[in-house]
């Protein structure tokens, strides 16, 4: 292999090979964090006994510590924890721990977004749904949820961009995603041209984030078309009167 720095194009092509891992980790964490976040929100809104204080501590811890330390605690701590139950997870891929951390971190933030969004829906909407004899599930999925989405979307967009950016720390436990590959390329070149590699990495993350932001904007626009937001405004007007 020829020593010395690669051209910018070579670096880009090499890094591109590992973008799917970044995207996979992001997508998987986002989906799981979404469902866990909804469960956490439900516990907080319904004030489920026993679980409620537990969830409060979880959210406080998750929001009060840096994600990097959560990554280390989960990476080094969960094997010890699982060992208590006789399960050996030392052989598991780092990606599993990476996803665990991102889910742990983002489910709490998601619940912080979802709870106020849920509470922002006018109480009259609940009453109206009840008055026409809807079941609990029908009420949530047909009446409440469609109104929560437009309120929560802008914050969820920020959350997804933060999630993409947070994947950049996963190289510290050895995940070879976009950032991990950059580290390897630099190590292969004995550190020559590392600034240009990192600049390419930065531009790639920027591009991914921009696409994500654009996607969220599109969904926001689509929601406006369905006039969920205007229905909400109507509810608020009633409230004021």
């Amino acid at each position: 292999m020829k020593p010395g720095p690669d051209s910018i194009f070579d670096i880009f092509m090499k890094l591109l090979e590992n973008v799917p891992i970044t995207l996979l980790v992001t997508l998987l964490s986002a989906v799981v964090a979404f469902f866990l976040g909804i469960a956490v929100t439900a516990v907080r809104i319904k004030r489920v006994k026993l679980l409620y204080p537990l969830v409060s501590v979880y959210i406080s811890f998750s929001r009060g510590t840096p994600i990097l330390i959560q990554l280390f605690v989960i990476y080094y701590g969960s094997p010890l924890l699982f060992k208590l139950f006789g399960i050996d997870i030392n052989g598991w891929s780092q990606i599993v721990f990476a996803v665990m951390t991102l889910v742990f971190h983002n489910a709490a933030i998601f619940s912080e977004i979802a709870r106020p969004a849920y509470l922002a829906v006018d109480k009259g909407q609940h009453d109206a749904a009840d008055s026409i004899g809807m079941t609990g599930a029908q009420k949530v999925f047909r009446i409440i949820f469609p109104q929560v989405v437009p309120i929560a979307l802008p914050s969820v967009g920020n959350l997804i961009i933060d999630l993409i950016k947070d994947t950049a720390i996963l190289f510290t436990i050895g995940v070879v995603d976009l950032m991990g590959r950059a580290k390897l390329i630099i190590a292969n070149n004995y550190g020559i041209g590392k600034v240009s590699v990192y600049i390419v990495v930065a531009l790639m993350y920027w591009f991914i984030s921009a696409i994500a932001e654009h996607g969220v904007r599109l969904i926001e626009k689509r929601n406006k078309k369905y006039k969920f937001a205007s229905g909400l405004a109507l509810g608020r007007e009633d409230h004021d009167v």
């Binding site: 961009i161 950016k165 947070d166 994947t167 950049a168 720390i169 950032m179 590392k194 600034v195 990192y198 600049i199 990495v201 930065a202 993350y205 920027w206 591009f207 991914i208 984030s209 921009a210 932001e213």
Partner: peptide, 22 residues
């Protein structure tokens, strides 16, 4: 603003850290 918001902090940190001596 768009660049700073769309790029991970750690990548920016490395760029500055490694280009500062030069």
């Amino acid at each position: 603003v768009s660049f700073m918001r769309g790029t991970p902090l750690i990548v920016l940190l490395f760029i500055v850290y490694f280009s500062l001596p030069d």
